[in-house]
Design a protein around this nucleic acid. Structure first.
Lengths: 126, 126, 126, 126
DNA sequence: GTGGTCTAGACCACG
DNA sequence: GTGGTCTAGACCACA
C-alpha cells in the first residue's frame, strides 16, 4: 500500500499536482514500486484533509500519465516499469534544474557559486 | 531608466508576477540600481504588449515589497539599499535552491549527483 | 459568516480601502472573529452594489495583511490570533490619535482643550 | 514673511493640500498673522522640493478660501480677520475629531478610553 | 461555486 | 503625462 504519511501540503502549486508529484518522487526514490495498491479516494481524502474532488483529479492525472491503473472496482494499482521510472526521473529532474539554472544565469551568478549554493542548501536542510 | 528589452513573456505564471521577478532578478544582477526610473504604465504597456492594468498590478506589488516608490502624478523610481538588495538576493536564491534540494532528497539523489546534474544543465543552456 | 449589513459606502477614500477598514474595525470590536467565513466575491458584490473586482482588490489587501486566507476554489476565512488582533487594534488607534494630536499641537491647543473637544464630539454624534 | 522651515511632506494626502493645511494651522496657532507675506512660488518650490505646479495649486486653493491675496505682481499676502480665524479653527478641529470619534465608536471603545488614548498620545509625541 | 487573472476602457487627482 | 481607482465582462484552474 502506497503510504501518504510523509505527504505535506504546501502553498504555491495546486494540491492535485502536489499529490501527483509526491507519487512520482516516491517512484523515483524506490519507496513506491510496481503493483503497489493506492489508498481509496475516500480514505486519502480523509487522511490528508483534502476535498474528494481534488483527489479524484490527481488520480485521473496519474491514470492519464500511465502511472496507476484502476482495476476490480474502485481499487487502483501502481503500474510502472524500470524504463518508465527513468523517464519520470529524467523529466522531473531536468525541468526543475533547468528552471534554476536559467534564473541564476539571469541573476549573474557563476556556475561555481550556484553549485556551492546547492551544496549549502543540502546541508542546511533538516 | 530601467530597460525591459530583455523581458520575455512566458506561460505558466501570471504576467504581473513575471514582471515582478524580472525586476527582482535585475536588481540582483546589478543591471537595475537605486534611483533608476521605471517606465510609465502606458509606455511599458505598449512596449511589451500587455494591458496597462496588468502593469499597474505588477508595480503595486513592487511597491508593497518596498522595491519601487510611486507618487500619484509623478514618475516611479527604484528605491533599494545595498542591504535590501542582499535580502532580495538571499531570498530569491534560497527559495529556489531549497525547493530543488528538497525534491531531490525525496527522490533519493545524492549531493554529488545533484551537483553534476546542475553542472550539466548549466552547459546545455543556450 | 462575516456580516456586511452595517457597511455603508462613503465618498473620499477608495471603496476597497473602506471594505478593508470595515473588516479591521469589526475585528477590533469583536464582531468578527477567527475562523469566520467571508462572503464570496459575487455575493458581497451583489450585496453592497460594487463591482466584483473591487471586492477582489479588498480581499487581496486583507490577505496581504494576514487577516484572511484565500485558496483558489475554496472559500475565504478570517485567520487572526488574539495577538494579531491587539496589533491591529493598537495600530488603528495610534495611527488615528497620533495624527489628530500632532495637528492639534501645531494649532497651539492645550491637552485639556483637546480632551473637551473630543468629549463634545462624542456627545454630538448621532 | 511666512516661514516654511517647519514644513514636512508626508505620504497619504496630496502635497498641495498639505501646504494649505500647514498655512491654516499656522494661522490658528498665531504664528501666521494678517498681512504676512508669502514666499514666492519659485522660492517655495525650491525650498521644499516640490513641483512649481503643485505650489501654484496650493496658492490657488488658499486664494479661493480667501486666506491669501495676490497683490502688486507676484507677491501674495495673508489676509485674515479674527472671525475668519475662528471659522478655520472650528472647521479644522471638528472635521478631524468627528472622524476620530466615529471610528472609535465603531471599534466599540468607550469615551473614557478614547480620552485616555488621546492623553497618552499627547505625552508620547516628541 | 470560488478565487485569480487578464483585457478594455473610462475617470479622476496629482505634478 | 502619470499613477490610482473603478466598472464591465470574460476565462481559467481549482475544490
Amino acid at each position: 500500500m502506497v503510504s501518504f504519511e510523509q505527504f505535506q501540503m504546501e502553498d504555491g502549486s495546486p494540491i492535485y499536482l502536489q499529490i501527483v508529484s509526491f507519487v512520482q518522487r516516491g517512484i523515483v526514490a524506490g519507496t513506491i514500486t510496481d503493483g503497489d495498491e493506492m489508498p481509496s479516494r475516500r480514505v486519502l481524502s480523509a487522511l490528508i484533509g483534502v476535498n474528494p474532488n481534488t483527489i479524484q483529479k490527481a488520480y485521473r492525472q496519474l491514470e492519464d500519465d500511465g502511472i496507476i491503473e484502476s482495476r476490480s472496482g474502485a481499487k487502483s494499482y501502481v503500474t510502472i516499469t524500470p524504463a518508465s521510472t527513468r523517464t519520470i526521473r529524467g523529466r522531473l529532474l531536468s525541468k526543475e534544474t533547468a528552471a534554476l539554472v536559467q534564473n541564476m544565469k539571469q541573476m549573474g551568478i557563476s556556475m561555481e557559486e550556484a553549485i556551492s549554493l546547492v551544496a549549502e542548501a543540502w546541508s542546511e536542510e533538516e
